[in-house]
């Protein structure tokens, strides 16, 4: 290896510094090539459409109309409703997923019997195909045969069954719960892997000093996994912001927009109004919101990681 190295160096006549750069470029090249060839076109395709007057029901010309689509969307009260629902949806989902995911990871990293089995079981919601999960919840929520209503009425918490998905006041919460259930194991897996990489010596030293569990958690565990926590919250934010199928199968954003979020709004603009100019404009606005978030939040991650 060493011999080959010097030969390469001689051939290329580069300094080790330059060579490292070349290696870095080579390492990143495959990922860049795939992403920028496959991804650039779809993004530009949508960006361009957002400045055009595209209504599928009026085929023919698709003239450029500047920011008109954006103006229409921003003055649509349903857009603002969907935006505020999206904020509630994202914040509660990220919050609960982080809490459940991180605490279950910490518990499952302790000395427990049947740890492997527990880890596997906790992963179940994540492995169930989304379509099936959504239908299962739809059925659990059923106002007549649903197991949830049955429990709540039997235990006396409720006087009578509630149509959770058909009720103005409960629809949004009723779609949030399954989404949390479905994806919190992702945070758990991510955190568990980070916990497993903390050197055991750190804990051993702390134990010698008589540190309690909570002190170890506060001073060793959490600081060590901080970058992972940032990453987990970033990724769950992106995913929940763009989540679609759970809401669509459960309520389609209804009743009467009570659980409308931006993704269902975009879908309806595309395939009910067939106005792709407006739907892509909405998507670009969503993109911009997330992009700003990623830039601001990404800084934190870089800060924590390096």
């Amino acid at each position: 290896m060493a011999q080959k190295n010097s030969k390469e160096n001689a051939l290329l006549n580069v300094t080790p510094f330059m060579k490292n750069r070349i290696v870095a470029v080579l390492l990143l090249a495959p990922a860049c090539i795939i992403l920028f060839t496959v991804v650039a076109y779809p993004l530009l395709y949508n960006l361009i459409m957002s400045f055009q007057d595209i209504n599928l029901l009026r085929p023919g010309g698709t003239p450029f109309i500047g920011l008109e689509n954006y103006k229409v969307i921003l003055s649509d009260p349903i857009f603002w409703r969907a935006l505020s629902h999206t904020a509630v949806w994202v914040i509660s989902i990220v919050g609960f997923e982080m809490f459940l995911g991180v605490s279950s990871a910490i518990i499952l990293n302790q000395k427990l019997r049947f740890k492997g089995a527990f880890r596997g079981l906790m992963l179940i919601p994540w492995t169930i195909p989304g379509v099936v999960a959504a239908f299962t919840w739809r059925w659990m929520y059923d106002a007549r045969f649903g197991i949830l209503n049955h429990f709540l009425v039997e235990t006396g918490i409720l006087n009578e069954a509630v149509a959770w998905l058909g009720n103005y006041n409960t629809a949004l919460a009723a779609v949030i719960l399954p989404q949390i259930w479905k994806n919190f194991p992702f945070v758990m897996i991510l955190t568990l892997a980070a916990l497993q990489s903390i050197p055991v010596e750190l804990y051993e030293g702390a134990k010698v000093d008589g540190a309690t569990f909570w002190q170890q958690l506060r001073y060793i565990t959490l600081p060590s996994i901080k970058p992972t926590l940032y990453l987990a919250s970033l990724l769950t934010t992106i995913w929940s912001f763009n989540a679609f199928s759970m809401i669509w199968i459960l309520t389609e954003g209804g009743p009467a927009h009570a659980s409308e979020v931006l993704t269902t709004f975009v879908y309806k603009k595309s395939f009910q109004a067939f106005n792709f100019g407006q739907s892509t404009a909405t998507a670009v606005i969503m993109f911009a919101i997330l992009f700003v978030f990623v830039i601001l939040y990404g800084k934190k991650i870089f800060g924590g990681g390096e």
């Binding site: 929520y141 045969f145 069954a161 149509a163």
Partner: peptide, 22 residues
């Protein structure tokens, strides 16, 4: 109209609601 019917959106649910004597 029963409460359960407020979330029905497919023919399958209609048929099922009828078959279960809801």
């Amino acid at each position: 109209v029963p409460k359960a019917s407020s979330t029905w959106k497919s023919w399958e649910e209609i048929a099922s609601g009828f078959a279960t004597e809801t």
